[in-house]
Design a protein around this nucleic acid. Structure first.
Lengths: 356, 356
DNA sequence: CTGTTAGCGCCTTCAT
DNA sequence: ATGAAGGCGCTAACAG
């Protein structure tokens, strides 16, 4: 069997308690004793059994991260950032893919009084709406990612999606675009994040003195490239097609741009396009993609910090944290020449958009 | 405190042993007893404590998946597939990002006799070379992903990288390309996977009667888009620049294509490009990307099945499993018109390349 | 500053 | 087919 603290204790001529103290960096251990225990640990090759420790401590040592789909760049990039934040706190991250399936999301939350599986949860809901989320009780700390959907019992971290969407659409309007479409609305209960972006879209239109046209707001059932392509096809069939498109994520934008170019439209000359998420691929695509860039590292840091605050016993009211975002302006709205000029304006910044 | 089997036992008027039997689907329990226990479990809301169970069973219930970086599409897509394979076996996957850092990779493997952290490991090494990997002993089962680096003690799953690279380069040669470059070689110990692709590249050149030019093989320190861009810049500075490029993954290809288009080269008319991995983004990029498509689902299924075989006690010699691959031919090698024609050839297949 | 003792919740021989 | 009892490896009272 494995080496235990008893083996170490015997070897070092101390009690198991002392070994435990050394392993856990308990400060009040005589230097000499500590050294002897350390030596024994090394020579026996002792490793603490985390399962036993966690049983004793009444925790699992794991925090779960639930995202719709890892293959979506936003979520894989965010997951990486969250794992990097968690690593130094000696917890383990387990990632769950929900596919936005309401049943799986519900299971995760309801079953979470199987606090036997994880001590805390960072959760990016997609299939669950405000009323459902609000109805869920429970002891295990949860931090929600994405737009706040209600006054429910959960902490949450997001960017100001209304303002972010507004900035994207204002940018398009400032370029002289008059028929600005939106791809990605989700006009049903579980689409809160999409809906607030639509709200920002409308606010920006109004501010620019443009009248909204319902035909220009195309809902999609998901945020994949194929959905963006289909939506763009629909828009091109309009009697008066758009001269700009605001897509609710970068994958939708990739699909939309592909269709535009296939149909002989130039981007941005004929149709300007803005995405959302600042996926790395948009920095190398042709054209490079203007996009709203949520600060994923700040989001990750906020979410993890808040979760650990709860794990440490903080029992205050749910908090509502806002991470910053930026609008990255690239070729898909201002064209290649202007994009190059903008880059030259900030020497050495590498291949990035201009931040506003 | 939480509800335990003792609470359930008392409530149902049976012994803890019987509750355990019911929970674990032990077959020899009287139907009536089973029902009563089930009722008690429901009404008390009992959940088995996995930590305790795992302590008792001497396992952790976790399998680790170590990949260089989740933000690389190949790894996020593969990770998703692996998680889907593992889920039904009631194990938990923990993902570790190594960044290809040899120290972190070594820690994962050496420390794995901290079998207290995971029961098995699926590992995609990047920073560790044959000699290091071969020197590592240990009890915890490990399945290696990627090219077999030695006759070491590990199972491994891969595609035939030589053949895959060969097929890509043969395709380029068949289009009439004469100066075919390769981006992504890693001519040092830890670059085995890259090296076998280079080997396939050379084999295909020879088969096509083309003489190799060392200047056309550009090593890169990583497989990111920026590295592909830099490598392509180098190639364009050559007196005789290439008329085709084989990139060792799709990100390198994305960077290379971006540079080509920036410099006014047409893809594929002036320079044809093939990538590797079949990342989803290559199906929508402009041009769409011809690429070698490893069957990620088969890779995931093979790796997981083999790992569980070991967890179930299989003690046989290390095995060497080959997953299939396909060459997806898209616009970056045959141009838009031909790509459309090829698509029409297989009606209803959606936006895909032609498989050969 | 360190030793002793008693579980954390579960599974699993040994019985019956 | 079910009870009784011990221990997986660790930590946290409680001494001393």
């Amino acid at each position: 069997m494995a080496v235990t603290i008893y083996d170490v204790a015997r070897h070092a001529g101390v009690s198991p308690r002392t070994v435990s103290n050394v392993v856990n960096d308990y400060p009040f251990v005589a230097a000499e004793t500590r050294r002897r225990v350390r030596d024994s640990i090394d020579s026996l090759g002792y490793r603490p059994n985390l399962v036993a420790r966690n049983l004793r401590r009444g925790r699992t040592g794991m925090i779960a991260l639930a995202v719709p789909e890892l293959a979506v760049p936003y979520f894989s990039e965010l997951s990486g950032a969250i794992m990097d934040e968690v690593a130094p706190r000696s917890y383990t991250v387990i990632i769950e893919q929900t596919d936005g399936d309401p049943a799986r999301e519900r299971a995760l939350l309801e079953d979470r009084d199987r606090s036997h599986v994880f001590d805390g949860l960072i959760f990016s809901p997609l299939g669950l709406g405000a009323s459902e989320l609000g109805a869920i009780p429970g002891a295990t700390p949860v931090v929600l990612l994405g737009e706040r959907v209600n006054e429910g019992p959960f902490d949450h971290v997001s960017i100001d999606n209304v303002a972010a969407a507004r900035s994207a659409v204002e940018h398009l309007a400032s370029l002289g675009c008059r028929r600005i479409a939106a791809i990605g609305d989700q006009p049903y209960e579980t689409g809160e994040t999409a809906q607030v972006r639509t709200q920002g879209y409308h606010e920006a239109l109004e501010a620019a003195g443009l009248s909204p046209d319902p035909a220009l707001v195309v809902p999609t059932s998901n945020f994949h490239r194929s959905a963006g392509a289909e939506a763009m096809e629909r828009l091109l069939e309009l009697a008066e097609p758009p001269d700009a498109v605001f897509c609710y994520n970068d994958l939708l934008a990739a699909g939309a741009i592909r269709v535009l170019l296939d149909r002989g439209r130039r981007v941005p000359e004929d149709v300007a396009v803005v995405g959302f998420d600042d996926a790395e691929e948009g920095r190398y695509s042709t054209p490079t993609l203007s996009t709203v860039a949520p600060d994923k590292h700040v989001i990750a840091a906020m979410a993890v910090a808040q979760l650990f605050r709860r794990l440490d016993g903080d029992i205050g009211d749910p908090v509502d944290l806002r991470a910053p975002f930026a609008l990255e302006i690239r070729e898909s709205t201002i064209g290649r020449l202007q994009a190059i000029a903008a880059l030259d304006g900030k020497a050495g910044a590498g291949r990035k958009g201009r931040r506003v």
